[in-house]
Design a protein around this nucleic acid. Structure first.
Lengths: 270, 270
DNA sequence: CAGGCACATCTTGCATACAAGATATGGAAA
DNA sequence: TTTCCATATCTTGTATGCAAGATGTGCCTG
């Protein structure tokens, strides 16, 4: 491949956009205003399927198969897979194949610790800077969440949960924190569906949010941080039990052999 | 686009890799063991050019031009640009064009604050968990940095600087922190070359690292955190002056019009 | 029966052609 | 002169074909 022959600058380029693109990409991958292209649709579909564990960790993905399945060509499928690989949800081996990543168990604890650090920063700052209207909005989110919990609407509950955390970051003046948290918690999200429907969990989480918000409203930053911390401790403790129940979904260390023969447990999807 | 007709799982797929891919993707984009493909080479080249401001913020990039310049087809160029767009270094407007992002000034402070939170977490934990050999390795990095500073080797100095921070995260047992920090500080890196060669800066930074490490070695976590914090405060204060000297490189808010006519200052590259 | 090697067949990486939309340009009309 | 519109030409998005490597299969050889 040739090196660029000269400094890149500006021969006349007649078709240059005059409007700065929408404020999507903040710190990185993040939201990216859906361009509604086939590639984005495929990406979102695969992302959801993988996060929801509807595609089994370790399963093979073929660009051709996916292209047929979605009725598009390999090009947008490939674009989607490359983004998923950057997120760590699939693993591409150059001339060989692409598989859905197993959940890297060692990263789960790390992800939770990092998330706590980021969200504590957010809630501390939000306690100082949140406006009255932002606090009102947060209360309405808590209320919406309570309603979803009572109606046993898990999907709506989860949506309100995410909106709450995003709004905290927004109120802190650091909206990028929520984007980062979203990146960090990708693998953690995959085990969300594995938590047993422990009775009253949703109402408990709602109360924890309310506790955070009560402290925040009183501008008691440290108490808000503590409440957020204990809120986020919830999942961490249940990790070992979840793994015990679903051993095949996890992997200890990436880069090791997966024993395929009769000696090892058959871990490949088929 | 058709929806996938049935649950994705496992018709027989003869060519499935048996070796788990190398442990590249940790939390996200991150390192990704260089696949030495054309797309990666183009990506790395463009990434470096943009970070070093050798390509002007606001300049237009055409896939065709880049393909010619690098002597490859549009396909790998496109793959590189998509990754850069996810990182926030370029902005793609669908059927119109691609430009190098201007530096979003508002995000710089946020990035620095987030970085501080992450690195404080890392150094606190490293103070507890670092092994003797890790501490020895850190001292050698400080020494290497001191040598580069004395030799006025800015590039070597910067490499050692980054290695030091990465090693702290490693010693903390949270290597993913460094990957996150790398993502967060992308835009900040772009103004690194704009700092005036304030005399003795490199030696001062080296001393700050030594202070962090001295506290860490004594297992005095809080003092190490404080040292790291003041270390990272350095750049934050110089932001306004840097912007004052290079107003065209920055943008306040994304999503606004860029006045192209004679009424406004001509901000496009050509 | 065991080991090894050639080959068929899959995989991803890249090049190229086409499609559809956005912008700039130039001329026509007021 | 100013405004508007048709159009040429650029842009990115997608489809498709080819290339090169990797893996599984089965025959061949010992």
């Amino acid at each position: 491949m040739a090196q660029p022959s000269r400094k890149i600058a500006a021969k006349r380029q007649p078709n240059r956009p005059r409007i700065a693109p929408p404020a999507n990409a903040r710190h990185g991958r993040a939201i990216r205003a859906p361009r509604a292209t086939s590639a984005v649709l495929v990406y979102e579909s695969l992302h959801n399927e993988i996060i929801a564990l509807r595609i089994e960790p370790g399963a093979g993905l073929s660009e051709n198969d996916l292209a047929n399945r979605y009725g598009v060509s390999r090009t947008p499928v490939r674009e989607a897979l490359l983004r998923l690989a950057d997120e760590g949800l699939v693993e591409i081996v150059p001339k060989s194949g692409t598989t859905v990543s197993r959940i890297p168990y060692a990263q789960l604890n790390e992800a939770i610790v990092i998330r706590k650090a980021l969200e504590e920063l957010a809630v501390r700052e939000a306690s100082r800077r949140a406006t009255k209207s932002q606090i009102t909005g947060l209360w309405s989110l808590v209320e919406r969440q309570r309603e979803a919990a009572k109606a046993d609407d898990r999907s709506g509950f989860h949506a309100a949960d995410e909106a709450f955390h995003a709004a905290i970051a927004e109120a802190a003046g650091y909206p990028g924190i929520w984007h980062l948290v979203n990146q960090v918690k990708v693998q953690v999200d995959r085990i969300r569906h594995l938590t047993l429907p422990e009775g009253g969990r949703m109402l408990r989480v709602t109360k924890e949010h309310a506790a955070v918000l009560t402290a925040l409203e009183k501008r008691d930053g440290e108490r808000a941080v503590a409440a957020m911390r204990s809120h986020l401790d919830g999942l961490e403790n249940s990790l070992p039990e979840i793994r015990r129940r679903n051993p095949d979904l996890f992997v200890d260390q990436v880069g090791v052999f997966v024993l395929p023969g009769p000696a090892g447990r058959k871990t490949r999807s088929q």
